[in-house]
Amino acid sequence: MMKTLGQFIVERRKELGLAGREVVAGVHNSDGKPISIPFLVDLEHDRRKPSDEVLEQLAKVLKVDSDVLYFLAGRFPADLSATTVNSAQELAAGWKAFRREVKRKKKP
């Protein structure tokens, strides 16, 4: 069972043995400053949503595929936005493939 984005972040951080300060040092806002510890704690408790920029950096620090974080955040990665999908059929086919893969993995 997948967790919420916040639960996933905190679990992964602990798996890697990282303190909050070590994570925020590697994640910067658009102004170039590191995100704050309170912001990270809010993310870990699902009280705030990260921007794409923050999410991509978090994925690097936590050594996970950013697609996982996008999925848990309930968003599409930037390269899969509405402007990059050519047609409704293409989108539907993509989802069908995704469902098929999930179903296949569930089989014993």
Binding site: K14, G17, A19, G20, R21, E22, P38, V41, D42, H45
Partner: peptide
Amino acid sequence: EAVTMLIERDAADLDL
């Protein structure tokens, strides 16, 4: 951060 990690090890949650 070592103190925060110690708390995180033993507590269910460390929150603001």
